[in-house]
Design a protein around this nucleic acid. Structure first.
Length: 603
RNA sequence: GCGCCUGUAGCUCAACCGGAUAGAGCAACGGCCUUCUAAGCCGUAGGUUGUGGGUUCAAGUCCCGCCAGGCGCACCA
């Protein structure tokens, strides 16, 4: 049996399939037809088949597209690859887009397309405007992306910045590719760490009230923001809240020491007041986090609170679901989830011997709830240190009878932070970190975001603060901005002259076949690749592709700009070039927008 | 010890999920401003893709071993 249609491309993971552009699909059709023809004529055996894959050659001289079909067929066909290639080329149907086809190297079939294919992109960009690059590969799939979700125990630091930049850019890129995206921040506001936070605040409070500098709990949060919150507590409650931390065994045992302190404080100021302090601390820190994210250009659609989920019984329901399906058991006084039956390396505790639900239990509840919301697909963006967590969360979903494939977890590797070549240790608890706010203030939002998103998220990254700050003037994003600025400058110059500025309609109608210079051809080709870049970035969850693309587009523009003038006497050619650079400006703006980076104001 | 991730130019990183001669930026060196911003362009130099095998027409990419680094192996969150 001969397959009538091309085999589908492999899809190792859902949502990550390679994208095929209309041009590639068109060429694949031609090749398919040639293959059929060659088989029918008995040039190669009738049952010979291979996957047709049309790709972009790395080398410019190898044409616009290339296909390795002949090499894949060679063995089964019993003929040398070049011979198969020649036969295929001879059998290719006519297509107006194709200017030339050649057999090259070991048996590649190289396609050179007609220039008009690329020249036509300019009016397309100008007509589509900010919509250029949007696609429908996402097919309206409803996706939730959960990211940052930093514990509300302190300000966001530069480590969170990477996740924020990645998640937000991914959301924008996926929206552009036709996904319906909802961004969520999961607030871990339940559990012991919030008590530690409140206790830290009360310790500062006591220091402030007494004016002493008595011992601060070793395990407490030591950042200056704790003092601010303490001052707020003092404002609200006055100096009346008394407690005596004496007996604190911090020095001997910091862990039990902090728990002892928490108990002490609760007993002495009362659970209700303690809860109020906790809430004040949470509200203050969350407010800061929101403000920092806002300054960073990152917005969330939804803020999910762990405590609210717990209160709503979400966790209990999830555990009941697991128990019903017999995936829980008791041992050593604790309740365990048999995650080892679902690919995890060992079973995990969900209810501790002291009766408290573990963080994992809450996460099961949270994820189960997410599965029952309106999304087709869930993406969690986690720090790489959580990789050991993937198997158990997915396992829990599977155990609940849910399709774990719907949950995709993207791990973002750590950004190692350096200051002048020396690694900076970071600890929220010890108050040693460089905040995201600091980074934004010193490097600038746009530069910071661009640097983050220029790297693949699953790659380790070294971020040297001094270099980033020093390079502010020399930053990759300025290179792109500069292209934008130069284009604006051309318009300004034109406006100053006695030549009339063409209307948008006139630009869109310009005769782009006049753009025949080699550097114009390269620039046109780069413009043409934008939509597929967006599609690939979305499908592969790789927004860095857009950043790289913009660098290349800017580079092609600068090269063009240095060789050819736009404002020239030849009115027709000038109009075509104005249309070209305007298209470049548009695509730069669109691409930067997908990364959450502002384009310079249009002049 | 076990598991996951990663080793690409001096540095920071790409390389379209197996293709043809591995590319950019920074740093170095040499050129280009009376003409739309030199925040730019052009050129030179820089590599046994950690290492040793394997798979095949073809390997930075897939498989195995080794070396090195990061992270994880809680009744923490």
């Amino acid at each position: 049996m001969l397959p009538l249609s091309r085999p589908a491309r492999p899809t190792p993971r859902p949502g990550l399939e390679a994208t095929e552009t209309p041009l590639q699909a068109r060429l694949a059709e031609l090749l398919e037809s040639a293959l059929q023809n060659v088989r029918d004529r008995g040039v190669i055996p009738a049952d010979t088949t291979a996957q047709i894959q049309v790709e972009r050659p790395r080398e410019e001289g190898h044409g616009d597209f290339a296909c390795n079909l002949a090499m894949r067929l060679a063995k089964a066909a019993g003929k040398p690859p070049r011979e198969v290639a020649e036969a295929l080329v001879a059998a290719l149907p006519y297509a107006p887009e194709v200017a030339a086809v050649e057999v090259a190297g070991p048996g590649f079939i190289n396609f050179h397309l007609a220039e008009w294919v690329f020249q036509a992109v300019v009016p397309e960009v100008l007509r589509a405007g900010e919509r250029f690059g949007r696609g429908d590969t996402g097919a309206g799939e409803r996706v939730q992306i959960e990211f940052v979700s930093a514990n509300p125990t302190g300000p966001l630091h530069v480590g969170h910045g990477r996740g924020a930049a990645y998640g937000d850019a991914l959301a924008r890129v996926m929206r552009a590719a036709g996904y319906e995206v909802d961004c969520e921040y999961y607030v871990n506001d339940a559990g012991r760490q919030m008590a530690i936070l409140a206790a830290s605040v009360m310790s500062r409070y006591r220091q402030q009230v007494l004016g002493t500098d008595e011992a601060f709990p070793e395990k407490g949060y030591q950042g200056d923001y704790i003092r601010d919150i303490a001052a707020q507590v003092r404002e609200r409650f006055g100096d009346e809240l008394e407690f005596n931390p004496s007996g604190l065994t911090d020095a001997e045992d910091p862990e039990t020491g902090i728990d002892f302190l928490i108990r002490r404080i609760r007993e002495q100021i009362g659970d209700e007041t303690f809860g109020d302090v906790r809430k004040m601390a949470l509200a203050h820190i969350l407010g800061e986090i929101r403000a920092d994210l806002d300054a960073f250009g990152v917005a969330f659609d939804t803020w999910a609170h762990e405590q609210a989920l717990v209160d709503a019984g979400t966790v209990d329901q999830a555990l009941a679901g697991l128990r019903e399906r017999d995936h829980l058991y008791e041992a050593n006084g604790a309740t365990w989830f048999r995650s080892s039956a679902f690919g995890d390396e060992k079973d995990r505790v969900v209810i501790r011997a002291d009766g408290a639900a573990t963080y994992f239990a809450n996460d099961i509840g949270y994820h189960r709830a997410k599965f029952h919301r309106e999304f087709d697909h869930l993406i969690d963006i986690w720090g790489a240190d959580h990789h050991g967590y993937v198997a158990r969360v997915k396992g829990a979903m599977q155990a609940l009878g849910l399709d774990a494939e719907r949950l995709e977890i993207q791990l973002v590797q750590f950004a190692n932070l350096f200051r002048a070549g020396e690694k900076v240790a970071m600890s929220t608890r010890a108050g040693q970190y460089v905040t995201l706010r600091e980074l934004v203030d010193e490097v600038g939002r746009d530069a910071a975001r661009f640097i983050y998103v220029l790297r693949r998220s699953d790659q380790h990254m070294d971020f040297d603060l001094e270099v980033a700050k020093q390079e502010t003037e020399d930053n990759p994003v300025y290179y792109i901005h500069y292209a934008h600025v130069r284009i604006s400058s051309i318009h300004a110059k034109l406006a100053d002259s006695d030549r009339p500025e063409p209307s948008a309609e006139e630009l869109a109608g310009a005769d782009t076949t006049l753009l025949a210079e080699a550097k114009e051809a390269r620039l046109l080709r780069q413009l043409q690749r934008y939509p597929e870049t967006v599609a690939m970035a979305a499908g592969g969850r790789e927004p860095h592709r857009v950043a790289r693309y913009l660098q290349e587009l800017a580079s092609e523009f600068h090269t063009f700009y240095n060789s050819h003038r736009v404002l020239i006497d030849d009115a027709e050619l000038m109009r075509a070039r104005l249309a070209l650079v305007e298209a470049v400006r548009q695509v730069l703006a669109n691409g930067l927008g997908l990364l959450g980076v502002a384009a310079p104001e249009r002049m």
